[in-house]
Each structure stands twice: as structure tokens, then as C-alpha cells.
Design a protein around this nucleic acid. Structure first.
Lengths: 245, 245
DNA sequence: TCACATTTGTCCGTATGTATC
DNA sequence: AGATACATACGGACAAATGTG
């Protein structure tokens, strides 16, 4: 192949690796999902049935399903009435991959805190301007749920982190949602290495609440000041952290 | 199942799905890579050899390798002397997944431009304070390369996009590197749908150069103004864009 | 509670394509 | 050009999981 070089094309394109059959299977199904023909909750045929329909072996189907599964497009249930099911967890799968990337890049606490300060400041700007009643309610609900978890004696670990993702959603810009999810992936990773801290969690809830109050008043300056204080406070709690051995 | 509900635990935890063998294979190898025992360029044993060493079947190994491949940890070469090879393309694989996510979320040009403005503004702030001579040189080299590509008659498509990723690296904060890579994924996707525009590319190079000049002078205000103008200009070029059919 | 059917998970054997030496 | 080594793909088989009657 390629006896004559196409001079107009440099090394711009990714090397063509003749698509393997399982990749074809994956992208065919992915296409249907992105187009909306297959929707979350829909069940895909069983592996053997897919193999029959695509006219390939079952092993090939399985490898295609592995790709879809890792990409967050499907989940697979075993047993009778099981099989592949369409879901929408692409974002959370990205977080998983990001964790891998971060582990290789060895991020420091200061770098994380700096980035959070910068990003969430601009985030807040959009939230104050764009957030509607439903988003305010989501934030309020998040705080209530965190309180309930404290009362039940469980750690509002995930709930408190989720506050910032809801904040991102309230900006009504999907890019910020993804950027913030990226950053919170690192935050959660750091948090998970700390010993659970009930007082710290309670403090976080109070800080979230005061930030929300400022948002309700559409007071950007106050909200920003409170948010900065909160992020710095959480950052200082990370001090005891040490990288994985 | 779940005859008795565990009341203390909400839907906080990811459902435990008894780890499958191929997942075990994947994470064992991944561990070695993250720990640095296996490094990029190293060759993994062949499928059959891995199957022998792990004491599992070849198909199981294959599915494990699919996961590592999609995660960007390995590539696979066919043919004699081929086999799995360690690489570090995790970040680029994340971009691939992000594209999927963006296609499902249907991002608009205004949302993209807004996010770029906000993020690159704060980025620039760090660049002006932290960039050293080597980073300035990388930016300069990028511009020179783009010029050479124009002269050679090719489109400096990738090179121009790379300018912003180098900008992110110059902030010396790995989080910004990843955040900016995230956003540039979308920008590149939009760009790739436009008909090639030589004049636009030349203009971009000139704008990049003027931004770099301001950075050299450590003039934050001027650099910010130029960057904003540049991003808005590129955004306006997207106007003709229409979502995939 | 207990089979039963369905579906995934895993393994084996074999054939083919492909790249290297 | 031919031999070799590897991934790719197929088919068959059985075990394990899981919902149903």
C-alpha cells in the first residue's frame, strides 16, 4: 500500500488502523444512541442475537460491548432477562479516566485550590445571572439532604461535593458542567484520602448555605467572598494529605 | 434480591458488580503502569503468554486489553513482533469521550465562546505570572511552525489549536492543562466542520503573535484584550456551523 | 422453596489476516 | 519470497448468575 505518497497531506491525520470488526460494532450502536434512536432504558438484544444480526461471532460482539460499557453508553446485567441496557453515564466515565490521568500527573493541593478558586469564581458569576427558581431549589434540596445525612449519622460526603456540580448546572452552560465535574473529580479523590471529619462536613454545609443565601440575594460580591473562603477552608483541610505510596 | 433494605445507606455507593476477571486483568496491568514499573515504550507479552501467566483464557485477556486500549494505556500492533505496547495517551482518550458527551449535550457556539473567554482569561493571568523562557519559546515555536505550514500550502489547523494548549501548559498548573484540553476538544470539533479558511488561519496566527508579544511584555491588560478579541473572532467564524444532521 | 430458561462470563480449538525478519 | 509470530475472528462448550413460574 501507499506506493505513491500523497504530498499534500502531512502527518496531520491519525494513523489509519484498518477498523477492526468490534470497533465497527461499537460505533454502529453508538451512532444509534447519539441520534436518539436508542434511548436510556432501552434494552439491546442479547449477545447471541446481536451476533446473529450483525453477522459476526459472539466474541466480536463482546469486545464491542466492552468499548460501549467503558464509554458509559451501556451497562450489562447478567442472568435471565439480563443483557445490555442503554444508559447515559458518559460524564462519570470521563471522571474515571481523569482520575487515571491525575494519578499520573501528581497534582498538588495548591494547584487544585488555585484552579478551583479561578473556575468557581467565574462559575458563580454566571449562576448569579442565570440561575432560575428550579436551580435555587436544587441547591436548597442538596443542603437539606446533607443535613438529613448528618442527622442520620452518615457522612454527607457525596452530597456536599454534589453541591458544586449543581452550582455548575445552575450556570446553564454545559461546558462549565463538564469543567467543574473535571475539577470535582480531583477534589473527591483528595477528600476520599482524608479521615472522615464530621465537624468539617457540618462546617461545609453551613458555608454552602451562606453561599446560597448570597446567590438568592443576587449579591455577587458577597457570594464570591464566601465561596473563596469556603474553597480555601477545604483546601487547608487537605494539608494532611500525602500522595499515594 | 434486597429483601431487607439497608436503611443507613442511600443510593450513594456505586452498585457493586462482582469484579469480572477481565476487569481484574485490566487493573493489575494498569497498576503497574501507574506505579511506573511498566513505562511507555515497554512491550507487554502476547495475548497467549498473558493468558498463561494470569492463568486465564485468551478471550478474557483480550477483553482486558480492550479496556486498557480505550483508556489510552496501551496500543496494539498486529503481526509478528507485534503485541500490546505501553503508551501514555490517556488525555487524548478523554478528549474522545468528551466528544461523545458533547454530541449528546448539543453545545451551542455562544456557550462555547463564553466558556472560552472566562477560562482563558484566568489562564492568561497565570501565564503572565508564571511562564518562563522555555514556555515563551514553545509559544514562539508554535507560531513559527504555523507560518511554515501556511507557506507549504497546508492548513495550520492542529498547530493553531495547539497554541492554546501550550498556553495552558505555560500556566504551570496541570489542572488548567486538562481543563483547557477539554475545551479545545470542542473548539477543534467545531473547526473541523468548517470549510478550510486560509485567510482565517493567517489571521489567527497574527492574533496569536500579538498575544504572545503582550505576554512577553508581561502586560496583562493588553494580552487579555487581545485574547478576548481573538476568541470572539474565532467564535464569529463558527456562525455558519449547523449541528450534525 | 425449587427447578427452569435465559443470558453473561469464561475457556478451548482452529482458521485467517497481517506485519516482521 | 517464505517462514514466523502475533492479533483478529469464528464456533462450540460449560459454568455462573438471575429472573420466572
Amino acid at each position: 500500500m501507499s506506493h505513491a505518497e500523497d504530498a499534500s497531506a502531512k502527518i496531520i491525520f491519525a494513523r489509519i488502523r484498518s477498523r477492526r470488526t468490534f470497533e465497527e460494532v461499537c460505533s454502529e450502536i453508538k451512532k444509534l444512541i447519539i441520534k436518539g434512536i436508542l434511548r436510556p432504558g432501552n434494552k439491546l438484544p442479547s449477545e447471541s442475537e446481536l451476533a446473529r444480526q450483525f453477522g459476526v461471532g459472539r466474541q466480536t460482539i463482546r469486545e464491542g460491548l466492552r468499548l460501549l460499557e467503558l464509554s458509559g453508553f451501556i451497562t450489562i446485567q447478567r442472568g435471565s432477562a439480563g443483557g445490555p441496557i442503554i444508559i447515559d453515564t458518559v460524564l462519570s466515565k470521563i471522571s474515571d479516566l481523569l482520575l487515571d490521568a491525575f494519578q499520573m500527573k501528581k497534582i498538588t493541593i495548591d494547584e487544585l485550590t488555585t484552579a478551583r478558586l479561578d473556575v468557581e469564581r467565574v462559575l458563580l458569576n454566571h449562576v448569579i445571572r442565570n440561575a432560575g427558581d428550579d436551580e435555587i431549589k436544587s441547591l436548597q434540596d442538596n443542603i437539606l439532604q446533607a443535613r438529613r445525612e448528618i442527622e442520620a449519622g452518615t457522612h454527607p460526603f457525596t452530597t456536599n461535593s454534589e453541591f458544586h456540580n449543581i452550582l455548575a448546572k445552575s450556570s446553564r452552560n454545559p461546558i462549565f458542567v463538564i469543567v467543574e465535574a473535571t475539577i470535582m473529580t480531583v477534589v473527591i479523590d483528595f477528600l476520599s484520602r482524608l479521615t472522615p471529619d464530621f465537624d468539617g462536613s457540618k462546617r461545609t454545609i453551613r458555608e454552602h448555605e451562606s453561599i446560597l443565601d448570597a446567590i438568592k440575594k443576587r449579591d455577587l460580591e458577597e457570594a464570591t467572598a464566601l465561596l473563596e473562603k469556603h474553597i480555601l477552608e477545604v483546601g487547608s483541610r487537605f494539608r494532611g494529605y500525602r500522595p499515594i505510596p
